[in-house]
Amino acid sequence: MVSERMKVRTTRGARDVAAAVVLHAIVLGGIFGAGWLDHRHEANWGDLQAQAGAVQATMVSSLPLPPRVKPREDSVLASETPSVAPPVKKAAVEPPPEPRAVPVPEKRTPPKKVAPQPTYAPPKVASEPPPKPTNRVTSGQTSGVRIAMQAVKNSVGTSAINVTDQSFGDRFGYYVRAMNAKISQQWLTQSLDANAQGRRVYLTFRIDREGVPGDVRIVQSSGDRTLDQSAVRALERIDTLGPLPDAYSGSYITVQYYFEPQG
C-alpha cells in the first residue's frame, strides 16, 4: 500500500515536473521568440517601411522643404507614382503585410518580418492665421512691456514668438511668420517625456543681419531637461532664418520664444 501510494505520488510528481517544464518552455520560447523577432526587426535597416517612414521624418525636418508628402502606407516609396515593380521583384521582396495582418508562424519556415506601419499622421499646424498685432508703437521705442506673442500651435505643441523691438513685428510680420514656421519645423519632440506636456520653456536668442541665430539662452526653464534641450536644439539646427529685412535699420533683433508641448 505504502509503496503503491508512493508510486502514485511519484507519478504525480513527474507529471508536475513535466507540466512545469512545458510551461517554462512556453515562457522561454515566448521570450526568445519575441526577442528574435524583434532582433529581425532591427537587423534589416532600411528594409522596413517603418524605418523608411522614420527617414522620411528626418528628411522632412532636414530638407528645406515644407513637409507635404505623406508616405504611402503600403510601400517604402515616397514616389508619386505607385510601384510598377516587375513581378520577379515581388518574389524577392516580401510584400508589406496588411496593417492588421499577423503572420502565422510555422515550425519549418522562419516567421515573416513584421513591419510596423509608419503611422505618419499629418501633423497639423497653425490653422489660424497669426493674430494681427494689436499694440502699435505710438511714440518711439518703449520698454518691452507688451509682449504680444505670435503663437503657433501644432500637433506637437505651441510655440510663440516675440521680437523685443516691438515695431519689428508690426512692420515685418512676414519675417516673424517665416521664422516661426522654420523654428517649429525644426523642433523634434519625439524624445520628450509625457510629463513635459503643458510646460513651457522660455528662450531668447538673437538674429544677426544675415539671419543667423545665436546667443540662445533659456530664460525660464520648463523644469524638464529634455524639453529645454529640444528647444535649444531646434535653434541650433538652423543655419539661417533669412537675412533681416533691408528696411530694418538695426544690426540684430532679439527674439523671445517659448515652446510648449501638447499631448
Partner: peptide
C-alpha cells in the same frame, strides 16, 4: 512587438513638422 513598433513609429511622426499649411 507590433504594438511597440507602432508606438515607436508614431513617435517618429511627431517631429514637430507642420503639414501642408506652412507652405
Amino acid at each position: 512587438v507590433t504594438a511597440v513598433g507602432s508606438v515607436r513609429a508614431q513617435d517618429t511622426v511627431f517631429t514637430g513638422t507642420n503639414k501642408g499649411a506652412d507652405r
